[in-house]
Computed example of a mutant assay.
Amino acid sequence: MVRLQRYYLEEYEKASVEQCKNCWAVNLCNMCYAACYRENGIDIEAKNELCTYQKDQLKGELIMYHQVLETNPELLEHIQDIEII
Rank of each mutant, 00 (worst) to 15 (best):
T71D: 12
D81W: 03
R6Y: 07
C36V: 06
I44N: 09
L62G: 11
N72Q: 14
L76W: 14
L69H: 04
R6E: 10
S16Y: 07
K21P: 00
D56F: 05
C23L: 09
K14C: 13
C29V: 15
Y7T: 08
E39Y: 08
A15C: 14
I85E: 05
Y65E: 00
D56T: 14
H66A: 01
D43L: 02
L58M: 15
Q54A: 07
C20I: 11
L69W: 01
T71R: 12
E49M: 11
R3S: 01
L28P: 02
G60D: 06
P73Y: 08
W24N: 07
Q54R: 12
C32D: 15
Y37C: 00
K59M: 05
I85G: 09
N22T: 10
I44F: 09
D81G: 01
E39V: 12
Y33Q: 03
Y65C: 01
G60Q: 04
Q5H: 09
Y65F: 06
E70H: 06
V17C: 13
H66T: 00
Y8F: 04
Y37P: 03
D43R: 00
H78L: 15
Y53A: 13
L62R: 03
L62C: 09
M31P: 02
Y33A: 04
G41M: 10
K59E: 15
N48I: 09
Q57K: 09
K59L: 15
Q57G: 02
Q67G: 00
T71C: 13
